[in-house]
Simulated scan of single mutants.
Amino acid sequence: MTHWYREFFDDLYLRAYRRMEAPEQVQREVDFIVRALQLPKGTRVLDLCCGQGRHSLELARRGFQVVGVDLSEALLYAARQRAEQERLPVTFIRCDMRDIEFADEFDACINMFTSFGYLESEDEDAKVLQRVAVALKRGGKLLLDVINRDRLVRQFQAREWHAADEGWLVLEERTFDHLSGRVETLWVMVTRDGVRYERRFSVRAYTPAELRWMSERVGLRVTELLGDYDGHLYTWDSPRLIVVAVKE
């Protein structure tokens, strides 16, 4: 499955994951980002794969200088509308994450909600880390938030339902390929009237050791592994795998 990410993130996606935009959840996640990266107010932050801007906007509300990058025009449109409504000085840019051209500009980069691992190969994912390393100032930090592969395999759920916006339901049917390390998902959305939409997506689930090796190859030294947005240390059973790394 190639290039699925070019079409997947549209208005249907926004409906399916509207629950992620609850103010208390966004505030909790940004509290965690600020603590984990020890960010002084006013620092310059790159939100890579910013989506509809939920973290970018909250960081801007707190006085950070934020640039959000995403490939989805639909999600960026939503982000820009909200920034304009609140008069928040956030810059949103449409760009493939492999193609960002910043150099020594940012004190921190965040990549949240498993936005890493979409691409077709490990080499393509490595290009993203290379571009992040170039974009960060020396001493700048990366926070990379992805699914916990260890927990995924140990507690694998082949099927899961959740409620979406306006009474819609979302079904995710998953398979895991042990050779490629990829989770292949059939995503089915059913409206209140029974109309059915189907999409597929594929994400590489990396181990902590793999992420450390990939990061350190490009000059990003891993300093911490965390397992949730409360800042607990990573374990096999943590809900998330969150890597904190610094540019040397």
Rank of each mutant, 00 (worst) to 15 (best):
A158F: 07
S202Y: 09
R212S: 03
E24I: 02
D31Y: 07
E172V: 09
E86S: 08
R138L: 10
R98F: 00
I33R: 01
F102D: 06
V128T: 06
N111I: 07
V243H: 03
P89G: 13
A164V: 10
L226Y: 06
D11A: 13
T207I: 07
C109T: 13
R80W: 12
F201S: 08
A163D: 15
G139M: 09
R94F: 05
Y229Q: 04
A163R: 15
L211M: 09
E84D: 15
L71Q: 11
V90Q: 04
V69W: 10
P208N: 09
L143I: 07
Y206E: 01
Q38R: 14
F116L: 03
R87M: 08
Y234K: 10
E166C: 03
M112A: 04
R174I: 04
L129K: 03
M214C: 08
L144A: 00
G53F: 10
S56R: 14
P89I: 13
R221V: 07
T207F: 05
E248Y: 13
D125G: 01
I93C: 07
D125M: 02
Q81P: 02
A163C: 07
G63Y: 13
R200Q: 07
M214A: 09
Q52I: 02
Y77I: 11
A36R: 12
F92M: 15
G219F: 08
D107A: 15
H162I: 02
Q27G: 02
A16S: 15
G51N: 11
Q25D: 08
Q27I: 03
W236D: 13
D237P: 00
I93H: 09
F156L: 09
L37E: 03
D193S: 11
E124F: 08
D150I: 01
E7T: 11
A60V: 13
D10I: 08
L233E: 12
D96R: 02
D107Q: 15
D237S: 14
L76S: 13
A158C: 01
R28I: 00
L152I: 05
T91H: 11
R149I: 07
V188M: 06
I147H: 11
R6G: 00
T185P: 02
I100C: 08
H178I: 14
E173W: 04
V183P: 01
A135L: 02
F8R: 09
V190L: 08
R98G: 01
R80Q: 15
L12C: 02
P239C: 12
A205N: 05
R196F: 10
F9M: 09
E86I: 03
V183H: 05
D104A: 14
E210P: 04
I147W: 08
Y197A: 09
W161A: 10
R154D: 12
Q38P: 02
Q38Y: 06
F64S: 05
L59S: 04
T2P: 00
D123V: 04
F201R: 07
E86R: 05
A79N: 12
H55K: 11
V244N: 00
E173T: 14
G139V: 06
